[in-house]
C-alpha cells in the first residue's frame, strides 16, 4: 500500500478506556503506525479533522458538542466505526436515561454529597446535555461496530488489519464480548 491510511479518533461520552485499548495493542502499535497515519485524535492532540479514511468513535452522544464532533467525523471519514459499548448502545452513561435531565442535574449539582455551592451550571460555553444519551448510530450512519467495554487490543487489531486488507470482518470467539 503506497499511501498510509488516515485515521481519526474521538472520545465522546466515554471514559477513554477504548482509547487506552487502542494503545493496548502493544508492540503491534509499531506495525500499526507503519500502516496508518493519525489525523485528529487525543493520541496526538490534533484538534481539527481533515479528510480521513477511517474515523473511530468512542463513547455515546450525550450533549450538543458530541453531536457536532460526530457529524464532523461522519462528514470527513469514509468509514466510521463505533468503538466500544458506549458508542454501540450508550453504555453506562445511558443509565441516566432512566431519569429526567432535571433529576440528574439536581442530584449532581444540588443535592449531591459534598456540594457546597448548589447551582446547576449554565455558562453558555458549556455544551447543553441531550435529554438522553444515545448510541452514535442513532445520529449518523455507522459502518462498523466493535462492542466491548472496552474492546480488547486484540479485537481492535483483528478488525483494523482485516479492514485494511479488505477482508471480511470476522473475529475469533473470545474477541467479541459486550463487557
Amino acid at each position: 500500500m503506497a499511501d498510509k491510511i488516515k485515521v481519526a479518533t474521538a472520545s465522546l461520552c466515554g471514559c477513554f478506556g477504548c482509547h487506552m485499548s487502542i494503545l493496548d495493542i502493544d508492540e503491534k502499535l509499531f506495525d500499526l503506525v507503519e500502516l496508518v497515519e493519525f489525523d485528529r485524535s487525543p493520541i496526538n492532540d490534533i484538534k481539527t479533522i481533515g479528510k480521513c479514511d477511517i474515523g473511530i468513535i468512542e463513547g455515546g452522544v450525550a450533549n450538543s458538542e458530541n453531536v457536532e464532533v460526530l457529524r464532523e467525523f461522519r462528514e470527513h471519514c469514509d468509514i466510521l466505526i463505533a468503538l466500544g459499548a458506549c458508542a454501540v448502545n450508550g453504555g453506562i452513561p445511558a443509565m441516566r436515561n432512566q431519569n429526567t435531565l432535571q433529576e440528574c442535574l439536581e442530584t449532581a449539582y444540588i443535592h449531591g454529597i459534598g456540594v457546597d455551592q448548589p447551582c446547576i451550571p449554565n455558562d453558555p460555553e458549556i455544551p447543553l446535555l441531550l435529554d438522553k444519551v444515545h448510541p452514535i448510530h442513532e445520529i449518523v450512519k455507522v459502518d462498523h461496530f466493535l462492542p466491548g467495554c472496552p474492546p480488547s487490543g486484540a479485537t481492535i487489531w483483528t478488525f483494523l488489519t482485516e479492514l485494511i486488507e479488505n477482508k471480511p470482518i470476522s473475529f475469533p470467539y473470545e474477541q467479541i464480548h459486550y463487557d
Partner: peptide, 27 residues
C-alpha cells in the same frame, strides 16, 4: 441517513433547566 430522533428537541429539557435559550443552545 437522518437521525433517529429530533436532535434539537432533545435539548429542550436542558434549555429549560439551564435557562439558556440563545442560538448556541440549539442544534
Amino acid at each position: 441517513y437522518e437521525p433517529a430522533f429530533d436532535l434539537d428537541a432533545a435539548l429542550e429539557e436542558a434549555r429549560q433547566v439551564t435557562h439558556c435559550f440563545g442560538p448556541e443552545a440549539h442544534i
